[in-house]
Amino acid sequence: MKIVALTSCAGGIAHTYMAAEALQKAARAAGDQIKVEIQGTMGIENELSQEEIEGADLVIWVADIAVMRAERFQSQKVIEAIPRDAIADAKAVLEKAKQEAGLA
């Protein structure tokens, strides 16, 4: 499955990156493709293109603050999660997101 995600947190640093790393690790373990955009103190890193967003089977926002450039996601159903949960158990967050999206 093709997954796109973005991570963002209030501090803009540690949780954002940890959540991104954890999601990548869990997705890889599950045999999924994933690209994670990081919205942190340095702005947007690893930015998702409109094509990537529209071509994804599953779109997840892992954020506890407002998402930047949210209009890119208008045409997609977005599943939301919080960074702390993704860090604690990214596998469970992905599984839950798949269920919510009707993919599991």
């Binding site: 990156y17 940890m18 790393e21 954890a22 860090i87």
Partner: peptide
């Protein structure tokens, strides 16, 4: 960020 990512 590097340290945080390692710690995952």
């Amino acid at each position: 960020a590097r340290l945080a990512r390692l710690l995952v």
